[in-house]
Nucleic acid binder design. Structure first.
Lengths: 127, 127
DNA sequence: CTTATATTTCCATATTCTATGAAATATGGA
DNA sequence: TCCATATTTCATAGAATATGGAAATATAAG
């Protein structure tokens, strides 16, 4: 990811209501959540929610699919992962000060197999 | 770090000129760089640079120290690390989709020592 | 003390962002 | 078809941000 590509993603997350939406969608997981449900949960007008979701979608952080009358939004974890990689590697140059704490979290979640495998088993645990 | 604490950091980075400043300062390392040097390098007015640096400093991403007539700004890697931890753990719930790619980068940078468990060192555990 | 340099503070301006009601569009059901 | 529901699009008002010139402040040097 390039610096310019990271900007809309950072901007999308750099706002209270949108960060809240994003976190809600992370919790919802791959099944996602309908726009109206999110709006009710966060107590915002439908049109406002629509605009916020559009920003998140344009950044690529979430994607939408229609289901009947509802439109379901779900997080694109790949995009989020790419942002974290960009911030860690390209932006911070993989400095030890940054990486060391991350390594502990990442390894706790995905213990490296011998010979270092980087792919996550599809069924890895989640909270 | 809490969601609210992450916001000013994300906002600070979510802007083209400030992200450029930040990356320049990452490259400069712990020694930092004088405000004027940054302004010249990025071709912006001194007053504009001052305002941008203030945003970064208020977010805690950089800190300033005076050296003679110059004011030297340097990145606070701890803060950046905290942001990445927040995004990975608290925000994304340490999902495998997010962690797996990070683990590979982090381990490349800070290889887990041989014969050592992959538990996080107590000093960096949270929650 | 005076002058030059480095940076910040203050201020004005232009731009962008956020939020919302109202109207438009899409879908499903009676 | 007609109506209700779900969401988006549009218009717009108000807030926040970005930028840079001018003046103020701090430091250094002669």
């Amino acid at each position: 990811m390039e610096s310019l590509a990271a900007l809309p993603i950072l901007s999308a997350l750099a706002q209270e209501s949108r960060l809240a939406i994003f976190r809600l969608l992370v919790k919802a997981g791959p099944d996602g959540k309908a726009a109206g449900d999110i709006a009710r949960k966060l107590k915002t007008a439908a049109s406002t929610m629509s605009a916020q979701l559009l920003v998140l979608a344009n950044a690529g952080l979430v994607h939408a699919r229609r289901d009947g009358r509802s439109i379901i939004y779900a997080v694109d974890f790949g995009k989020m992962s790419a942002l974290l990689l960009f911030l860690t590697e390209d932006c911070c140059g993989g400095r030890a000060e940054i990486c060391a704490p991350l390594a502990s979290v990442a390894n706790k979640c995905c213990p490296p197999a011998k010979g270092v495998r980087h792919e996550a088993p599809a069924s890895s645990r989640r909270r």
